[in-house]
Each structure stands twice: as C-alpha cells, then as structure tokens.
Design a binder for these strands. Structure first.
Length: 1090
RNA sequence: GGGCGAUUAACUCAGCGGCUAGAGUGCUUCCCUUACAAGGAAGAGGUCGCAGGUUCGAAUCCUGCAUCGCCCACCA
C-alpha cells in the first residue's frame, strides 16, 4: 500500500490530456535516443527479420496534407509494430523533386512577387548568361524550404523514420543512381531517340507524359468545312467534300482527307484529290477504316456528328499521325512551341502556299486562329454547318491548358521490351493474375511466362483488386517518353553534335578511335542512327557525326571525357528526365545502388509499399521494372527470404498496400491543386497528433475513398464553424477565400492556396479542423485518465509480491483473457493491413472492457488486492504496447509514468519486459494460456445481470448513488452461481443482494427483470405505470422474436439442411425466450392483481 | 467507351451467407458517482439504393437498373 503521504502519480498528469504539452517533449526524446536509426550490418541481421519501408517521397511543391498524413500514419503504424516485434526495421524518408510541378509552382510564385521569372531566365540563357543556373537556384531554395516543412510535419506526426537516411530524388547519391540507370538502359538499347507526337504543354513548353494529361469535358463546336475537289494538278473539278472537325485551326497542316472504304456513299472518292482552302495544298482522299461512317440515328455521338470525311493532320493529332504512318503522309507542323501559328517549325511547303491568305494567320494563338479560319470559311461560303458538341479534351495537369499534340524529338524508354513490362507481369503473384482478357499474353507472345516457369511471381496487392490495374497497364503499355523540356531535374547525360564536323578526316578518325576506346572502357555508350554502337564500326567514311549520341556514364566524375566532347563541339542535351525516372529508382537509390551496399543486401526488396491507387501505374510499375532489371547483375547474394528465383533479380517490394483517398465533405479528392487540402498541423493543433493518427488508422478499411467534412476554426474566438462554400473553376466546391463569422473576417486555406486572399491582422488565416478527429481525441483523453487513475491504485511492492502467476478472481481472469484475444486480433489485423480492425480492437478492449467493466468492478477492492493490481498493471502495460503504433506520443509519455510506478508486470502467458523507451519495447506475445473461456462466459452472464438491473434503475429514475435491495428467484444452481459473482455485480449495478434461491416469493412493491432462468427483484421501486410500460415493451419484443424463431423452425428446409448446431441454437433460444415471456407475463399479472 | 468502387441510423463509416444489423459524432432522459462532462448509465433512430434471381436462409452471392466517385482510353 502506498504511504498516505506518498506523492500521487496523478499529480504530474493533469485531468485533461493536453497533447501540446506532451508531444514536443516526446519527439525530442525520440530524436535524442537514436531509436529510429537502423543499421543493416550482418551483426544485426542475425535471426532478425528485416522490415523496410521506403516512403513514397512527397513532392517538394508544397507542404503535406491529410492524404499524406494518412499515408505516413499507416507506414508508421507498420514500422513501429515491426520495430517492437524485434525486426531490423528501417523506414526510409525522403522527398521528390517533382520536376514540372515544382518548376511551375516556383515560376508562378516568382511572377506573383513581381520577380524575374522563368521567361526572363530563359532569355538570359539564350544570350549566353547563366540563366539556367540562377533559376535552378531559386527552385533549390524553394525545395529547401518545403523539404524542411515536410520533415517538420513528419516529425510532428510522430513518424519514426530513420532521419539520418533522409533522401531527395535529386541529391548526389540519387543523381548517381539516375546516371547509372540511364547509362545501362542506353547501353542495352532500352533507351532510344524517337520522333513522336507528344502531349505538348504550350504554356510550360514541355512534353507531358500520358499520365500528366487530364481529361476535361469541354463545350465545343463541330465545324463542317467544304474542301473543293480537284485533279492531281490542283485544277478544280467541281464539287466538294465536307470534313467535320472540332479543331479547324489544324487544317493548315492537313495532308489528306480520309473516308472509310466500306462507306457505301463516299468510298468512291478514294483516289481523288481536294485543294486545301486557304493553303492551296493539293491533298489526296484516302481510304482508312479508322473513319467513322456517319449515322444520324446512332447512339454514338461521333457517328451522329460525323460527315464521313476526316481531315488528316498527322502533325497535330495522334490518330492522324497513325493514319499518316499507314499511308506515308507528310507531317506538316504549323505551330510554334507556344502553339501559335508559325511557318518556322516544319511547315515544309510554306513557299507553295497562298501567302495572302496564310499571312494574317501567322502568329495567332490556337484559339484566335480557329476563329479566323472559321471566319474565312464562312466568308468564302465554305462553312457548311456548325453544331455545338461537348467532348473530352486533354489538359495539362499543371498549367490546365489544352494539350497540343506536337511533333518533336524525345528520349524514350522501351518499356514494351520483355525485359521490362514482361518481367513486371511475371512478377505478379500467380493467383492475382487474371487470364483470358483479350490482351493477355499467349504462350507465343514474348511477354509470356517462360516455359520452365522458374519465375515465381510474388508481387502482391492489398486489396487484391488493384492487381488488375497493374496488369492491364502492363498489357497495354506504350514506350515511355522520358525527356522533359525543363530545367529542374536530372539532366540527360547525352552529348551530340548539332552540325556536321568540318575538321580534317584525320581528326575525325582520331576522335572516333578515342570514343571507341572509352566505349571499351565502359565510360561511355554510343548509339548511331538508333543502333547501339558495337566495339568496331565499319563504313567510317560515310559516318554522319550528327547521328551519334554519346551517353557519358558519369559526367559528374569523368570530367576528362566531358571536356574532350565539348572541345570537339559536342553539346549536352538540354532536356531533363521525367520525374518518375528518378522515383522509379527509389528503392535502389535510397539503398546506395549502384554500389553493392549492405543496405541493398539487407533491405532490397523492401517489405511493403504503402501508397494511393493513383500512382499504381506511374510509380509502382516503374519501380518494379527498374528494380527487377537493375538487380540482375549487382553481385549481391540472394537473400533466403527475398526477391526472385530467377537469377538474382529482385522486386522492389513484395506487398503493395493501396489505401483510400481522402475526399472533402463534398466527395472531392483532397489535393493541393484544388486548394481543399488540410494541413496536418491544423489537426495536430485542434486535436493532437495521436488523435489524428488514431482516427486516420480507424478510417482505413479496404474501401476506395473516405469522406472528411472539414470545418473551420475562427481565429478570433477559437470557435468551430462550417465555412461558406463557393464553386470554383471546374465546378469544384471550395471554402470561400474570405469568411465571416460573428462579424469578423478571416481567410480560408483555399484563399491562400489560390492566391485570392492574403491573411492580415484583421483577417487572419483560419485553421481547418474536422469533428471526425473527436474520436481519436476522446480516446486519447480516456487513455490518459485511465492511467491517471490506474497508476494511483498500483503499489509497486504489492504488484511485485503478487508475482507473475497470482490467484485470479473471475474479473481478473476475464480481463486477461480478453487481453490475450486482443493481442492476437491486433497481430492478425496488422499482418493483413486491416488497420481499422486493429484500431477498433484496441479501442474496444481498452475502453469497453478495461475501463467500463474491469476497472469499475475492482474499484472497491483493488487497493487491498495484490493480484488485482498485478492484473491491472499487466493490462495497462500491454495496452500501452499495443496502442503505441497508432498513438505513439501519449503512450510513450504514460510509459515513463508506468515505469515509475511498477517494474516487470509480466503474468503467466504474457511476457512484458520492461524497457526504457516504449518505442523500442517488445510487442506483447501471448501463448494462449491467458485465455479462460470459463471466466469469459461467467463474466458475460454477469454483464447481462448488471445491464438488466441498470435498465430497471434507469426506467425508475433511481439515482446512481442509491443502493437498492435485490433478491432473486432462480433454480438453486443458478442462484449459487449468481451468489459467487455478487461482489462484482453489486459494485457495477449499485445494489445489495438479499435472498437468492428457488423459493423466493416476490417482495411486495418490487420491480422485476428476467435474466435467463432468474427473475430479479429490485425492492421498493415499484411505480406500477413505469413497470407496466417496461414489461409491456419487453413482452412485445419477446413475442416478436419468438414468432420469428418459430417461423424459422417450422421451415422444414431449415431444420433439414442448416447445420445442426445452428438449429439447436435456435431451439435453445426459442426455449429461453418463451421462459422469459412466461416470467414477464407473471409479473404483469401480479401487477394487475396488486 | 473500358475498368474499379460506393449506395447500411440525421452525419461519417464498419459488417460481406446464419447473433435482436454495429461504431463514432449528433439527438433524448438521468447523473458534475474524488480517473475522465473530451465522462458515466439508459434510450430513440435503419423495409441495408431499386428490381429480379440463387439459397433452408441474402445487407452479405449473381444479374439488370439508378445515382455518385475514381482510374484508363478518346480533340472528326
């Protein structure tokens, strides 16, 4: 027993949990302890399983929002769980440079501030000044700022990353990996230069990947334009054909008109010619079955609108490009990179054109050119018709302008090669691969699994449905354009000569010799006319130096080569690599690849990738292909548990967990670009980090989306209110930029993000919050107070004396049994990535079982009962351990309080080794001996009795403090069993037991209730009206369920076919209900009589 | 157009062949019972989107429809 003057444990714990007073302190302790740092060395490897996660590196464009908070919370739950399990655990943090996104954001900011922006730096660079370097410095400064913000956010959320290993996709080690990766693919012929139509963003003037194009519905017009028929020489022959288009401006680049050869009316025109209006170009009418045959009655909008004649513009439309390829048509580009009409960028026959008509169009924007051309057609009586048409148009996901299909030279990765896409498909767990789709590889397809079947796929998606997305992507994959016309990124390590050499042949010879020598040394790789150059070149006389591409393996290190190349007049490709090229290498580059590091050996493959579904194709796919391709020959011994069976190639991870996307209260995706993102700091401020984490964990089921209605906090008063919403561009609902609440103004985070409002002293920025996090906050407070109380009850000496195997009363046996089940359920849930199940399991155990029942039951006795104290201590200790992954701060704080109060509180069947810091303490392991089914069923009966008595008390408005007298009429064995548990039941239901037995007469003036075979009387309570109402209601309920049960049993199909134990259960239940109904009926009769 | 998912209490979500369909928030009544009012006890509230089917038995499986969301494809 604690001495009367001993300082109370609760003295240091205030009655309401204040996260802000606890979290910074705990974060500091973790940082100082080095607890999150991991080493892969063989000494540690031993029998410990590795557990590694690479963070999906957030973009440095902006701070993290709740979607990231969710993503990182789940990773931290897994990381902390495995660390406690004793695994060699490393969670590797980092950020992504996010090429186009960051460059755009910084440029926008510079413009907003009125500073020199990208366009100015580009001008400087064109004049030979260091514009590129200076602009990159600006972006670098932005990156430094946001990388720091992001890291601060992660730490504030309690993420137990190994911050010593923090990586950035553009820092030196990652850059090294990118250069090496590029070099190997280049050398192996998997990178090539191609002339293709790319998705061109005329604003940022860069090519976009297919994934960076987002489709938006646009209200447009269908224009029907007449092209006059002519002969091959261009002499008009009378008549015309009518082409239909939504993009009249591209007609300047038309090189054919196509009709479907099966079109009965129009096929006859194939082989004829038209003279292109304005331009005067004579172009053929060709047959191609891509063309839709018009059908005014069709449901298909296109067939309805089509004229049957398709203008073909290979340089400005992807489908037309393909038609052009089939029919050998010229591709005439009529636009400049900024999408204005231009004669300078591939308008090869401009000299033959009708200058007078074309001249006014030059320099016009796409939009203006469209108007001008439509006007011209109208004025010249060639516009046959015009109809409104709503259709999808690809937009740049950054600048939001329509994407222009644009002909240019780009670098590609040949992901269609079997060594990449095929390998990714074969990496899939066989049971997650679906066969039978039209595009599934057949045995003869190069992507088919090899006949020997020595590759056992093991890439597994959770939930499994996402495997389909992954598979479909790879089955329909197209080569990956990796060059971007940006400055912010990894510069492509390829040199070439723009103009043919004019040096003497001897010098050329010497140069070639030197290149070949470097090639032999593996310092460069060369491609010539698209072919990887072998070690010897024939036909040197005819070499075209400008057709050489020289990839320098490591230009940062190999200065000698770079100097020579530039002395020879070769220049480096100005483009940079697609962001996903470096993030695709992430599980390799963060582990030190291409060196054969211990990290790579121990931690690649990583254990699980935790991400949202939107980047299954963008990112997951590329990591799988790269990791697999590059680990074939890295000289690392194969881990017994890890990686592939085929050679030594490895996956980047074997599990992919795809979590939900957080939507706002209107069902819109939470995103930075929309401006509806919520800063985790806001939630940490309003609810605390643990509350946020717990709630996010409990929201994570295997569904696709979760909705999060967002409220606002008035910075003037601290009140929470629902903001006013407005409809922003694109039809999205967002909080209005400025808000009023009780007559005072404030600025919403959307206002700031969109630049439409600036916070001031009078109108400060309003933080966001959401009442969804009350769940976590209330739970944290409950945990806090349970410990405040529990720690006060525990006496160190008593707990120690009780020992690990004390005599347990029913309550203690029950709660330990529940604890055992809870621990197992947590393990099951976490191993299956069922985060919500884990969260509710610990919640129910702690709040419902431990607080509501056990602690309440032992209140009167625990001060003098050492075994109850031992059981309580074990529950509290184990609870902290199993709660810790979800709520690390509060549990770490309480852990030190518990440590002050008691020592080792292990009990039989449950080892709870003390440890200074909870984050490194062991996860509780139970061997099953904690389970006590007898105690569980006994306690369940007790709960029914207590609840029944409470119900009667509540109906009769009995104040909690009033102790009522209770007696019970029951068969003697039941009565005896009730007597043995009366101590706990009396405490919990607030009564004093009188007589229990088979021959008890109903006391006069008593209310009654029925539990099983016992009728319980609560003395001196009777209010006949209340009682009658209660009993009538109960009678109705019973009658209803009896009817249902009887109906079920009267169904012969049920009694014949259902499992016998179920039938028996139904019979028993019916029996019990009928008995209770009889008892209730007796009470009602007595009431009526009395 | 192809694919994936959702539709269950006022709100946000669990449950995914057999408990009287659950939780958190909100609501009602009583209680500031010295752990916690961010709490305790009790309670109200649901023909599980609609229509068929399979089954002894369907919120749960199948088919169709409707509505909403996401991904992929698509500027005639």
């Amino acid at each position: 027993m604690s001495a009367p003057d001993a300082p109370s444990q609760t003295a240091s714990l205030p009655p309401t949990y204040a996260p802000h007073a606890v979290e910074p302190d705990i974060a500091r302790r973790w940082a100082q302890s080095d607890a999150f740092h991991a080493e892969p060395g063989p000494a540690l490897a031993g029998d410990r399983q590795p557990f590694t996660i690479c963070i999906p590196p957030p973009n440095v464009t902006a701070a993290l929002h709740l979607g990231h908070a969710l993503n990182n919370t789940l990773q931290d739950v897994l990381t902390r769980y495995h660390r406690m399990r004793g695994d060699n655990t490393c969670w590797l943090p980092g950020t992504d440079h996010a090429g186009i996104a960051t460059q755009t954001v910084v440029d926008k900011r510079l413009k907003q501030q009125g500073d020199k922006s990208l366009i100015d730096y580009k001008r400087d660079a064109a004049e030979g000044k260091p514009g590129r370097e200076q602009f990159i410095e600006k972006v670098q400064a932005w990156k430094d700022e946001y990388e720091q913000r992001i890291t601060d956010q992660l730490k504030a959320m309690g993420c137990s990353c190994d911050y010593d290993r923090q990586a950035f996709t553009m820092d030196a080690p990652r850059a090294r990996a990118v250069r090496e990766g590029f070099f190997r693919l280049f050398k192996d012929g998997l990178i090539y230069r191609g002339k293709r139509l790319v998705n061109w963003d005329p604003v940022s003037q860069t090519a976009l990947a297919d994934d960076e194009v987002e489709s938006k519905d646009v209200d447009g017009q269908f224009y029907y334009m007449n092209y006059p028929l002519c002969d091959e020489q261009g002499e008009l022959t009378g008549g015309h054909v009518t082409v239909a288009t939504t993009r009249p401006e591209t007609m300047l680049g038309d090189t054919a008109v196509a009709v479907n050869p099966r079109d009965p009316e129009r096929a006859k025109h194939i082989g004829q010619f038209v003279r292109l209006p304005i331009v005067g170009r004579v172009i053929p009418i060709i047959g191609d079955d891509y063309v839709v045959i018009p059908d005014p009655d069709s449901d298909d909008a296109k067939a309805k609108m089509a004229s049957g004649f398709l203008k073909v513009t290979p340089a400005h439309d992807t489908n037309d490009w393909e038609i052009g390829q089939r029919h050998n048509l010229a591709a005439i580009n009529v636009m400049a990179p900024d999408a204005t009409i231009s004669r300078e960028h591939g308008w090869i026959d401009i000299e033959d054109c009708d200058c007078e008509a074309v001249e006014p169009l030059l320099g016009l924007s796409r939009e203006d050119a469209r108007k001008a051309i439509v006007r011209w057609f109208r004025e010249n009586d060639l516009l046959a018709d015009q109809k409104p048409y709503r259709h999808a148009v690809g937009h740049s996901y950054r600048s939001h302008v329509p994407v222009e299909p644009y002909l240019s030279d780009q670098w590609y990765v040949k992901v269609t090669d079997d060594r990449l896409a095929g390998a990714a498909l074969r990496a899939m767990a066989p049971d997650q691969r679906t066969e039978g789709t039209a595009t599934t590889w057949t045995d003869t397809h190069p992507h088919a699994a090899n006949a020997t079947g020595d590759w056992e796929g093991e890439l597994r998606f959770h939930p499994p449905r996402y495997a389909k997305t992954f598979q479909a992507w790879h089955e329909n994959i197209r080569d990956w354009c990796i060059s971007r016309q940006l400055w912010w990124g990894h510069r492509i390590p390829v040199w070439r000569r723009e103009v043919p050499t004019d040096g003497p042949p001897a010098a050329l010879e010497a140069m070639i010799e030197e290149l070949l020598e470097w090639n032999r040394q593996g310092r460069i790789a060369m491609q010539y006319r698209g072919e990887v150059v072998p070690l010897a070149i024939s036909e040197r006389d005819q070499l075209d130096l400008t057709a050489f591409f020289i990839c320098v393996r490591d230009p940062e290190q190999d200065a000698e080569i770079v100097e020579k190349l530039e002395a020879w007049g070769l220049t480096r490709d100005p483009d940079v690599l697609d962001t996903w090229f470096s993030s695709g290498l992430w599980p390799l580059s963060t582990m030190g690849w291409p060196e054969a590091t211990p990290e790579l050996q121990a931690w690649n493959p990583t254990s699980v990738l935790c991400t949202a579904r939107e980047i299954i194709t963008l990112w997951v796919s590329r990591m799988v292909m790269f990791n697999h391709y590059f680990t074939g020959d890295d000289g690392l011994a194969q881990r017994p548990e890890g990686g592939a069976a085929n050679g030594q190639q490895r996956l980047p991870f074997r599990d992919v967990f795809i979590h939900a996307m957080i939507q706002d209260g209107h069902g819109q995706k939470m995103s930075k670009s929309l401006g509806n993102g919520v800063d985790p700091f806001d939630i940490i401020d309003s609810h605390g980090a643990d509350a946020m984490r717990y709630t996010l964990t409990s929201m994570t089921t295997h569904t696709q989306d979760v909705r999060m209605p967002v409220d606002m906090i008035d910075p003037h008063t601290g009140e929470t209110f629902t903001p006013k919403f407005v409809t922003a561009s694109g039809g999205y609902k967002v909080a209005a930029p400025t808000q009023d609440h009780h007559g005072k103004s404030m600025v919403s985070s959307f206002g700031v993000a969109s630049g439409r409002a600036t916070p001031s002293d009078d109108a400060p920025l309003a933080r966001n919050t959401s009442e969804k996090f009350d769940l976590g906050r209330n739970f944290a407070n409950k945990v806090w107070n349970a410990f405040r109380f529990g720690l006060d009850l525990l006496d160190r000496d008593a707990v120690e004396q009780a020992g690990p195997d004390p005599e347990l009363d029913m309550a203690s046996a029950w709660i330990l049994s529940r604890l055992g089940r809870t621990i197992r359920a947590c393990d099951d849930a976490l191993n299956r990535y069922e985060f919500a199940a884990y969260a509710t399991t610990v919640y129910d155990f702690f709040w419902r079982d431990l607080c509501d029942w056990y602690i309440e039951a032992i209140k009167p006795t625990v001060k003098d009962d050492a075994s109850q104290q031992r059981a309580l201590a074990a529950c509290l200790d184990a609870s902290l351990r199993i709660l810790h992954p979800a709520m690390p701060f509060i549990t770490e704080r309480l852990w030190s309080a518990l440590d002050e109060a008691v020592g080792d509180v292990s009990v039989r069947g449950l080892k709870l080794h003390p440890w200074p810091m909870l984050c490194e303490a062991s996860w509780p392991v139970t061997d099953g001996s904690l389970l006590d089914e007898q105690a569980e069923s006994d306690w369940e009966l007790l709960q029914r009795i207590v609840t029944a008595i409470r119900e009667v008390r509540a109906a009769h408005n009995v104040p909690p403090k009033r102790i009522v007298q209770v007696s019970s009429q029951a068969p003697s064995d039941v009565a005896r069993s009730v007597m043995t548990r009366r101590r706990f039941a009396e405490t919990l239901a607030g009564y004093e037991g009188r007589e229990f037995g088979p021959n008890i007469e109903p006391p006069p003036g008593a209310a009654s209730t029925v539990v099983g075979e016992a009728t319980i009387y609560l003395h001196d309570l009777l209010d006949p009206d209340t009682e009658r109402k209660r009993l009538d209601k109960r009678k109705d309920e019973l009658a209803k369920s009896i009817a249902a049960l009887e109906k079920r049993l009267s169904n012969k199909g049920y009694t014949d076919k259902a499992p016998p134990h179920l039938v028996q259960q139904t019979r028993d239940e019916l029996d019990a209900k009928q008995r209770e109904l009889a008892a209730v009926g007796e009470q009602l009769t007595a009431l009526a009589a009395g």
